[in-house]
Simulated scan of single mutants.
Amino acid sequence: MDIGMIGLGAMGTEIARNLVAAGHRVIAWNRSGGHIDGVRRVETPAQALQADMALTMLADDDAIRDVLLDTQSLHEARAGLVHVVASTISVAFAHELVALHRAANVAYVAAPVLGRPDVAARGELNVLAAGAPTALEKVRPALEVIGKQIWHMGDAPPTAYAAKIACNMMITMAIEAMAEAVALTETNGLARERFFELILGTLFDSRPYRTYSANIIRNEYRPGFKASLGLKDLRLATEAAAQAGRSLPMLAAVHGRMAEAVQAGMGDRDWSAMAALTVEPRGRG
């Protein structure tokens, strides 16, 4: 399959490498340059849309608007292209993209992913896919390369982003839950290592708890998923809740905590650095 890539950050780079390794022909456009063996670079985003499928992995709504919409690149897409947007974007913007793709006569599939760059490198992302069945089937071979499982979220692309935002919201709730539990147990003489051995061996043996408890134990928050991006996703969740007319108090708490972490200079650290505000005496680790 001929695949165009738009956005080669940490995640996009690993996805592109896996697609090449699987035998797909990949062309790519990226703002900041860079080289990936087997990937042919193109000069404009519109050129990356001259393929069977294009996969966009840009940072947010504004980046997609700037790169694809303001440049009118979407209207220059190759006939029959399926555009897969793997970025985490707002539900409201996803609704807008549905209308814009329809006007440009371009098939649109949502495919935000669960996983960090190391998971992407192993081709083990969980892909939350939504879109017209015919479009999904066309891009399924590529999605199967980048993900260990494709989760069908329905025919409407906005649904997939709602699910992704909700998943990220729940991860931050788990991080805050662990931090507050350590604050209680450690001040009463129980080492955090021993406490996490207990919860991982009983009630909470899941990937988020295993991944982020290790960071809290070491008080080291090397970036996997940056706190600044986590804050963006919690903002999207807050906006989606407001649009739905729902009050989500736990979301409000973790949104505020993540904002504190970013304001404290931890925006480039892993998003689990928010735990340091609770568990460390000076709040920064």
Rank of each mutant, 00 (worst) to 15 (best):
A241E: 09
D52K: 00
R140K: 12
T202L: 07
G245W: 01
V98E: 11
A259W: 01
Y212C: 02
S32T: 11
E239W: 01
D205F: 05
I64N: 05
I3Y: 11
T202E: 08
D70E: 11
A214H: 15
A59L: 11
V119K: 07
A132I: 00
A120H: 06
T211E: 04
E43N: 14
Q243M: 11
E43Y: 12
H24G: 05
R78N: 10
A179H: 04
E193R: 15
I216A: 06
T44F: 12
S228H: 12
S90K: 08
A130Q: 14
A130C: 09
E144L: 09
T159K: 14
S206E: 07
A77Q: 04
L234E: 04
M1R: 13
A253Y: 00
S228A: 13
N105C: 06
E239S: 05
L229Y: 12
E96Q: 07
R284P: 00
I199G: 13
A130W: 02
G12N: 11
A240V: 00
R218Y: 10
A135G: 07
A86S: 15
N105Q: 08
E239D: 06
T13P: 15
L58C: 08
R235F: 01
M153I: 08
M57N: 08
G154L: 15
K226V: 07
H95D: 08
V67A: 05
G131C: 06
I150Q: 08
T56C: 15
D2I: 03
A103Q: 15
A94V: 10
L136K: 15
M53K: 00
A241Q: 04
R41T: 15
K148D: 14
I27V: 15
L19V: 07
I216S: 09
N219C: 13
S87P: 03
S87G: 05
A191S: 14
M258H: 02
T185R: 09
A177I: 06
T13A: 14
L55T: 01
D118Q: 10
W151L: 09
E14P: 03
H75V: 06
Q149H: 13
A16Y: 05
G115V: 02
Q50N: 05
G147V: 15
R282M: 09
A77G: 04
T185F: 07
G189I: 06
S32A: 13
G224N: 13
T13K: 13
A54F: 03
F195K: 14
A163I: 15
A94Q: 04
V109P: 02
A120P: 15
L200V: 02
E96V: 10
M274W: 01
Y108R: 02
H24F: 13
D270R: 10
L136A: 03
V85R: 01
D118F: 00
M250F: 12
T172I: 00
A86K: 02
G23I: 10
L236F: 13
A16W: 04
T185G: 10
A21T: 15
A276F: 02
Q72K: 12
A130H: 12
L97G: 00
L234C: 04
L69Q: 11
I199M: 13
S87W: 05
V20W: 03
G147S: 12
E144P: 00
A142H: 05
D62A: 07
G23A: 11
P223A: 09
T44E: 14
S213A: 13
E76T: 07
Q243N: 08
Q149W: 10
